[in-house]
Computed example of a mutant assay.
Amino acid sequence: MPAKAKTLLIWIAVIFLIFAIVNDPDRAGNIVTSIWDFIVNTISSFGEFFSTIAS
């Protein structure tokens, strides 16, 4: 992907995120919380998997 196109897409994503947060901060907070919970649960599941393999 050309560098200018990548930069443009990043700026569009950042502007959209700022717009979404300003427009509806409660929903944006819920989305961030959901993403964080997903990441934590995924890491925990990998930990359990490797713990089960090791024992």
Rank of each mutant, 00 (worst) to 15 (best):
I31R: 04
I18S: 09
A54E: 15
G47S: 03
F16L: 15
D24N: 01
W36D: 07
A20K: 00
S44E: 10
V40R: 06
I15F: 13
I43H: 05
S34I: 05
I21T: 01
I18L: 11
I35P: 12
I21D: 04
V32A: 09
N23F: 05
A13F: 05
F38L: 04
F50R: 02
D24F: 07
I31P: 05
A3R: 12
I12Y: 01
W36N: 14
R27A: 10
F46D: 01
F38D: 07
A28Q: 01
D24C: 02
N23T: 15
K4Y: 01
A13L: 04
I15G: 12
S44L: 13
W36I: 13
F49K: 13
L9Y: 02
S45N: 14
R27H: 12
I12N: 06
S55H: 15
I43L: 07
T7Q: 15
M1P: 04
K4L: 06
I43A: 11
S44C: 09
T52D: 06
I15M: 11
S51L: 02
V22T: 09
I35L: 14
F50V: 05
V32P: 02
S45D: 08
S34M: 00
P25S: 09
S51F: 01
I31G: 02
I43G: 03
M1R: 06
W36E: 08
P2N: 15
I10F: 01
T42C: 11
F46L: 12
W36K: 12
W36L: 11
F38P: 03
M1C: 04
L9I: 07
V22G: 01
F38W: 13
L8K: 14
I18Q: 11
I43R: 11
R27F: 09
E48D: 02
S34H: 10
L9V: 11
K4Q: 08
V14H: 04
L8N: 12
W11A: 13
K4D: 10
P25L: 09
F46H: 12
V32I: 09
I53F: 06
S44Q: 13
V14K: 07
D26Q: 03
L17Y: 01
F50K: 04
A5E: 14
K6H: 08
I31D: 02
A28D: 00
I35V: 15
A3V: 14
W36S: 07
F49C: 07
V40H: 10
A3N: 15
D26R: 03
N30S: 11
I39M: 04
I35M: 12
T52A: 08
S55P: 12
N41T: 11
F19Y: 10
N23E: 09
A28W: 05
F38E: 02
E48K: 13
F16K: 15
A54Y: 14
D37G: 02
F38Q: 06
T42S: 14
S44Y: 09
T33W: 03
I10C: 06
I39F: 00
P2K: 04
I39P: 01
V22F: 05
T7A: 15
L17R: 02
R27M: 08
I21M: 03
A54F: 14
I12A: 05
N41L: 13
R27D: 03
V32W: 01
T52P: 04
A5S: 13
V40S: 04
A20Q: 08
